[in-house]
Design a protein around this nucleic acid. Sequence first.
DNA 1: AAAGACTCCAACCGCAAATGG
DNA 2: GCCATTTGCGGTTGGAGTCTT
Length: 305
Amino acid sequence: MLGARKRICNPGEEESGLRRGPWTLEEDTSLTHYISRQGEGRWNMLAKGAGLKRTGKSCRLRWLNYLKPDIKRGNLTPQEQLLILELHSKWGNRWSKIAAHLPGRTDNEIKNYWRTKVQKEARHLNIEANSKRFLDAVRSYWMPRLVQKMEQASYSSSSTILDSLDNREVRSTPSNPPVPNSLLCPPESRFTHYSNLGSENSCSVTSPYLLSTNSNTISQQPDEILETPSCSPLLGDSVCNNLARMGTCNEEGSSCDMDGFDLASAGMGTYGNSPFECQMAGGDWVFDSTEDTLWNMDDMWPFRA
DNA sequence: AAAGACTCCAACCGCAAATGG
DNA sequence: GCCATTTGCGGTTGGAGTCTT
């Protein structure tokens, strides 16, 4: 695959006898076969046992990030991206903790996603990725767009994600991971939270429900209940309508009709004289319903210069 | 077509925590 | 309790592939 390895002094054997750099098919096979027989753990011994000239650390990394059977490959779905955004806003760079809530995704993958996609956007916006401003932008615009994307995807498959949330328990599949808990809130509270987080009157992430990695269901976790006791699974209100209006851009990619879109009533955090608001008002939001599952960040940031 | 810029991501590193003797 | 080893985590790197000029 893509990507190469750093600091490869010698692509072949090193003086220590240990190999570094890209794994060969033979090495992968040896490691996989050995683990299938002996199981994981004791990586240094495992490396020797498998006859690999690799450090235990290297074997562990290769297994966990690439060879493990339940590793999910391919682009992150909007659901996964939304979950990452939400969890990152809550936990910061706790990649392994975030990955634990995305079945089949590795911390490395999430970390890479954050660095290559999210931080890139922050750079383009000239905002510090860890700043309140950027968090605000993410919550005000990026997350709602992902929600919209998810809703559109679910409409096309006859039942909506939000409909399913009415049941309070959402079973995920490998290709459809758990829906972020914030989505269990009515839309107005959802976006109030998204938009207010990190702002002056910020509240913490509203997570009355946590995702259970093992069961892939959403279950209530008392110690994680933070705010919004009023959260209910009821849907369909003015914000939903506003969001729906946001989605009324024509499919040819022409400008969205943002007239009448009321940021305030939608709970969308205003941004002072930020460029976001101006561009939004300019109706510059292009929507392309034909794109694939890879969420194109450029769609998220129409307000970019 | 070629060259340079950019993107992606596998795999490395250092450090800290956990575990074992 | 001490030391050595192992495991896990987050940050970083750099080469291959892709895009742009």
